[in-house]
Computed example of a mutant assay.
Amino acid sequence: MSNEIKYTFAPAFARAVVDLLGAVCRPDPAFPAADVFSLYYDTPARDLLEEKRNSDYLKTKIRCRWYGAVRGTAMERAVFLEAKRKEGAARDKARVLLPLDGATLWNTPLTSPLLCRLPEHLAEAGIPFPRPVFPMFILRYTRHRFIDPATGARIAVDTGIHVPRTNPAFIARHNPTPLPVAVLEVKGTLRELPRSLHAVSTFHFRRETFSKYLACHDMLFCSTGIPGGYTCFAPAAPPCGQT
């Protein structure tokens, strides 16, 4: 398992942070910049989200992930189903290549039985996951990736984090407004910000266990103006038996 450290900061500083990282780090040789798409799965009771909200020592995340051109419409063909597990600060991620492309997934309704069955590919690969889980929403953001030359740590800056599509059986509406926060992630064996990146701290970074899924989920339900939290939206029966 590797460690993952997250810092949040004001989106207004994102361009300056990316430029500074470009001056002190190497761009990722394979994927220096891309739009990231993630379809998140959860139980009807949002058990996986509550693991994060309650800061459980053991946490699981199930999602489909694919990539596209920055602020463009073209999407890569490869779509990966990921099971991400965290034990304290350590994380472990398993992924399975799915037999469909990003454009197909993007254009398929989130209530479709096809998307509801995708987590079964984890079981076929021998990867345990909680059941039943269903599509909740698609999250999109722009990611710039770097490599710290001194430690080899992988660094990412995520901006424009928003929810363009939701599953209407579970969530009343989407919200294309980006979160009022940008995120810097450091992945590797380090437990602190690499020394070569200390200049970035002038942008008032805040270290926290930030979850895009949790933050976007709560923004969606706050935006509806309906009191009582997300439990009032939980359907009586899963929608995936329907077309």
Rank of each mutant, 00 (worst) to 15 (best):
L114T: 14
D158W: 09
G126K: 04
E124Q: 15
S112W: 05
G102I: 05
L110C: 01
D148A: 15
G152V: 03
P119H: 09
A103M: 12
G160W: 01
A125W: 02
D148K: 07
T142N: 11
L118M: 13
C116I: 07
T108M: 10
I147W: 00
G160P: 02
H144N: 08
W106T: 11
R140P: 02
F137R: 01
L114P: 10
C116L: 05
T142V: 15
L139N: 09
L115F: 05
I127R: 06
G160M: 05
P149G: 13
P130A: 07
T151C: 07
R154K: 01
N107D: 15
I155P: 02
L100P: 07
T151A: 08
G126A: 05
G152C: 06
R140C: 10
D101M: 06
F129Y: 14
A153H: 00
L98G: 05
P109T: 09
L114C: 12
Y141I: 09
S112I: 07
M136L: 13
G102W: 02
L98P: 02
L110S: 00
G152E: 02
P130K: 01
T111L: 11
C116V: 08
L100H: 13
D148I: 11
L105W: 04
L97E: 10
L114E: 14
A103P: 01
T111G: 08
I127V: 13
A125F: 04
L110F: 03
F146L: 01
N107S: 15
L105R: 08
L114I: 14
A123K: 10
A153D: 00
P132G: 13
V157E: 03
V157D: 03
T151V: 05
S112Y: 06
H121F: 15
L114K: 12
M136N: 06
A156N: 06
A150R: 15
V157Y: 01
P132F: 08
L122E: 06
D101T: 09
P132A: 10
A103V: 09
I138G: 04
A123L: 13
T151Y: 02
T104Q: 12
T104A: 14
A153L: 00
S112F: 07
G102S: 09
R154P: 00
R131K: 06
G102T: 06
P109D: 10
P99E: 12
R117S: 15
I127W: 04
C116W: 09
G160V: 05
L97S: 11
R140W: 02
G126W: 03
N107L: 14
R143W: 04
I155V: 15
P119Q: 07
I138V: 12
P99R: 11
T159Y: 03
L105G: 12
F146K: 00
S112G: 11
G152K: 01
D101I: 05
T104I: 09
L115I: 08
F134A: 02
I155G: 08
R117T: 15
